[in-house]
Computed example of a mutant assay.
Amino acid sequence: MMFEADQRIVFIGDSITDCGRRDVRAPYGDGYVSLVRAFVTARFPATPLTWVNRGVGGDTVRDLAARWDRDAIGERPDWLVVMIGINDVWRAFMGRPAEAVPLPEYEATLRTLLRRAVEATGCRLLLADPYLIEPDRTDPQRAQSDRYAAVVAGLATELGAPHVATQAAFDEALAVSPASMWADDRIHPGLPGHAVIADAFLRVITG
């Protein structure tokens, strides 16, 4: 396993990470973060870890930038786990184009934030793709989402960070099942969809 005893694991992102962690599902939410924590704890009970969820629903990379000092650097992570980009794409397809984040801005902002976190804390990074639960890769939103996921994969290589291919995990499931099995809106998964994401994380974390 990549984590070591007594390390602090901080997750940051949008609603997929948040999952009610700020209210009735505090402090971990009821999505993939909670599942990853539970399974890592169950498999490695002799490796105590501190888990922190700093997801906020609706966030884009611009919103992360506004709270980065408090919610990423200020948490002093040993590992910083980042999944962001779904809203950066989606806003352009839901009638709020001014709130969408163009690809060059997304890449530049995310690179700057990640480098700042490493320089300030010495943390390791774990980067996960944004995704769209849509099997048709020619669908305009899916095609755009894939471009943002490619940025994350590129940054993972550039920064020497493990990479969680969440889109590929959903594509594997979509090859044998309908998108409606995993989410009603192609974005917000139910528990089985969060299990797909968590399983992708566990493959990377535990080998």
Rank of each mutant, 00 (worst) to 15 (best):
A169R: 04
A26D: 10
V176S: 12
E4A: 15
E107M: 02
Y148P: 01
W90C: 07
G57K: 00
R91S: 07
P130T: 00
A173P: 04
E4S: 14
Y28R: 07
R54D: 06
P189R: 09
A156Y: 04
V118M: 12
M181D: 12
T60W: 00
R8V: 04
A128Q: 05
D129S: 15
W182C: 12
G190E: 06
D184F: 10
S15M: 13
P162F: 04
G29D: 03
H194Q: 05
D171I: 03
Q144K: 12
P178I: 02
R67F: 00
V81D: 09
A66K: 06
Y32V: 11
T206S: 14
I9R: 05
D71I: 04
G13P: 01
T41W: 02
R124Q: 07
G85S: 03
T50P: 11
G190R: 05
A42Y: 07
R111A: 11
R22V: 10
V152Q: 10
T17D: 00
T112A: 15
T17I: 03
I86A: 03
V61I: 08
G160W: 13
R186Y: 08
G154Q: 13
L202P: 09
P162Q: 08
C123E: 06
N53G: 05
R124E: 05
D63L: 14
V56P: 03
P48A: 02
I12R: 00
D14M: 03
A72F: 02
L159H: 03
P102A: 06
A38S: 15
D6E: 08
W79C: 03
V40P: 10
D6W: 07
R186V: 09
H188N: 07
T109G: 13
L110W: 00
E134F: 02
R91A: 15
T166M: 14
R76G: 05
S15E: 11
A165I: 02
R203I: 05
M94V: 15
V40T: 11
P27Q: 08
T50E: 15
A200M: 06
R54W: 02
A161E: 07
L191T: 13
R25V: 10
G160K: 10
G57Q: 02
A153T: 06
V164F: 06
Q7Y: 11
D171A: 11
A143E: 10
L191N: 11
D71C: 06
P140H: 11
R37Q: 13
F170E: 05
